[in-house]
Design a protein around this nucleic acid. Structure first.
Length: 227
DNA sequence: GCGACAG
DNA sequence: ATCTTGTCGC
């Protein structure tokens, strides 16, 4: 059996990959990046963790903005159908994430996703993917770069540096805490780069990760013991 | 051909 | 993502 590069995963069926890329092409045409029209009151944080090789646990935490008070936390446990392949993360995780989203009693004005938005080879990171499926403003906060080049931002909190890919700014490298590695903030859908960056900074209290994704990550670990 | 590669 | 020990700093 063919294996994908250095990963020990079976290579995806070429026919499946073709369908995925075609789907991405269609989604590409729908990405809207502009000043959001919402009056931000509710913001959600989203994150997934794995239990074994194909068992996934997705979590949503709903917070009041700007108080950052936790209002709801929901999760969904399921099975993934595809291996992790850089650039195709959303096809592996989004189905389960969408199931978790359905369990929220109240829907947020904006979703902050653990991962990239448009800072992706085809501008379709998981934050963008989810935004299009839900027709909801989304933004991505990633811990590591996927594509693009950047200069290290100043070492002080609040410093930003553009992430450039093919002559285009696709994210802001944002220092959310002094002397700590920066995060990569990019718009997902129905929001613009400036607003996404401002909100990420406003939600960064005492930690590197903004509260929404930090708490989603935290509760993912907590709920894991309940599965 | 050689690295790089979200979670 | 996950597997893992000690270690540095607020």
């Amino acid at each position: 059996m063919a294996y994908y590069k250095r990963f020990d995963y079976p290579a995806p069926d070429p026919a499946i990959l073709k369908k995925l890329t075609e789907q991405q092409r269609d989604m590409q045409a729908q990405i809207i990046l502009q000043k959001p029209d919402f009056d931000l009151k509710l913001i959600a944080g989203c994150d997934s963790s794995f239990i074994g090789e194909d068992s996934i646990l997705s979590v949503f935490v709903l917070l009041a903005y700007p108080s950052m008070e936790v209002l709801e936390k929901v999760w969904h446990h399921g099975t993934v159908q595809l291996p992790y392949i850089p650039g195709f993360l959303s096809f592996r995780e989004a189905p389960n994430v969408l199931e978790a989203y359905k369990k929220l009693q109240q829907k947020p004005d904006l979703i902050m996703v653990d991962g990239h938005g448009i800072s992706h080879p085809r501008r379709l990171g998981i934050a963008t993917h989810l935004g299009i499926h839900l027709n909801k403003p989304t933004m991505g906060v990633a811990k590591k770069v996927l594509v693009g080049k950047y200069k290290e931002p100043e070492i002080t909190k609040g410093a930003i540096s553009p992430l450039v890919y093919k002559e285009e700014v696709i994210a802001n490298v944002l220092r959310t805490k002094d002397n700590v590695k920066p995060v990569f903030v990019s718009p997902g859908h129905l929001i613009d780069q400036e607003t996404a960056t401002r909100i990420a900074m406003e939600c960064a209290l005492k930690h590197k990760l903004p509260e929404p994704t930090r708490l989603a990550d935290h509760y993912a670990a907590v709920f894991k013991s309940e599965v």
